[in-house]
Write a protein that binds this DNA or RNA. Structure first.
Lengths: 262, 262
DNA sequence: CCGAATTTGTTCGTATGTATC
DNA sequence: AGATACATACGAACAAATTCG
């Protein structure tokens, strides 16, 4: 027996609205996601007001109770906001833009988009380089590297979670300098690297795992954008290899391609 | 009289595994996502074999049935593959790399990574520009634009779904030329644009909606990477504005930052 | 080749959550 | 609000295929 069965055809209304029963996601959650997506288009009017619940129920082809469950979840997430007698409204918060280019500086990434930015050292350690890290940094497998785990916040909300590796022989005190300066760029400058460039950036997207969920304050099923970046000094020698996780609903990456090499 | 056994929720186990009940996403789907994420690490051994269902159930803190539902879903997606008496195995398929830079050409994107590449025109139409499209292409809101919906395949598997807009006055016959050449680059060349550059690329990630699910052959809960791109001619005049959706488990974006401007 | 251990596949039953009417 | 049906999850078997000593 298959637990994911072939169910009876759902009502045409559900199909039309793109909803499905028995796929492991409750209708109200699918509708919540649908409303969230709709906000990017023209679901809400100029004043940020959504259509009445009865109308939404009709267009999604479900009972009004189901729409209410979806709205309640979104209200709990801080996306919507209902007022009895008036309607349901969007609480708009812009997605932060993280620019990527040869001059990408982590510390400057979200400049001017949030009142308050913080960086936090969560963990660090010295360890033999994995094959991936060794290859990226041009070291032998098993040579020692220093690992830094950092959390970035904007206005108190976690927006990035980075794991970075540095050669332990070239930057033996990077942990201490980072603790003082709270900045990779400043730390590298103290250690004699006055300039560096972003050589390449890989971008993937995946579901948040447990660590992401905890550290970035996400709900299960949330999506993280993962960048895999290599920074090199002006001579082209690898300096820093890092993975950074961004909550996909709070952050957008922008590659200014034509100026990327400047 | 029958004693009704009361099963206590092993809440601690669930929390340890990062699962939650009652959030509108079934446990089996959360576990499916967990397994998918685990494959990137060391969930499967060298031979691609996963731990037995009973062991997974223990580590996730759920019943074996629940793990089976998750595995069944992943098997249906083509990620896993179970054999009675032997175990459950990973069906490994490399993720395609889509490079992004100033010289990004859609047609050349996946060159050399697949034996067979196809492009398909799904739909097209003429319509007044939305405010977003108008702003990107430097047109007045409501000026007519031509919209092309295309599907990209590699070895028969859908890998991209693009919606592109062009000025209807500057490129009135773009649909016909595309139908002939099956290539945006070639179409533009026929219409007098011998060269163009990728000005900027925005990257977001979100859950697949119904259209994505159908057209890209995804399962619900799957993730799509969405790029928002603007191409300009050598004079800097906007030519093409497009949204492209990539299945996140089949495609990875790579920005070769230092050569991006070449 | 035999038989035991391992692992996936199947079928009961029961309880709880979700959605409709 | 209550009745009904479907969906999710747990528990305890047992069957069938594979592996291995």
């Amino acid at each position: 027996m298959t637990l994911v069965k072939e169910w009876k055809l759902p009502k045409e209304d559900l199909q039309r609205a793109g909803l499905q029963r028995g796929v492991g996601v409750a209708l109200w959650r699918q509708i919540a996601d649908g409303i969230r997506a709709g906000l990017a288009n023209d679901l809400a009017d100029e004043t940020g007001r959504l259509p009445p619940e009865s109308e939404l129920a009709l267009s999604f082809g479900v009972n009004r109770h189901t729409v209410r469950a979806a709205i309640s979840a979104l209200a709990h997430e801080g996306v919507l906001h209902s007022v009895q007698g008036r309607g349901t409204f969007v609480r708009r918060r812009k997605r932060l833009v993280y620019p990527i280019g040869a001059r990408t500086r982590f510390s400057a990434g979200f400049d001017g988009q949030a009142r308050d930015r913080q960086s936090e050292l969560l963990d660090h350690g010295q360890e033999p380089a994995s094959s991936q890290v060794a290859e990226a940094l041009g070291l032998g497998t098993g040579e020692d590297v220093l690992r830094l785990e950092t959390l970035g916040k904007a206005d108190g909300m976690p927006i990035s979670r980075a794991t970075s590796w540095f050669s332990a022989t070239r930057f033996p005190t990077i942990v201490e300098t980072y603790r003082e300066t709270k900045s990779i760029t400043a730390s590298l400058a103290l250690l004699g690297v006055n300039d560096y460039l972003r050589a390449s950036t890989g971008v993937e997207a995946r579901h948040a795992d447990e660590a992401d969920t905890n550290e970035l304050q996400l709900s299960p099923g949330a999506i993280v954008l993962v960048t895999r970046a290599l920074n090199v000094d002006p001579d082209g020698a690898p300096i820093q290899f890092s993975f950074t996780r961004f909550p996909a609903d709070r952050v957008e990456l922008v590659i200014d391609t034509m100026r990327a090499g400047e």
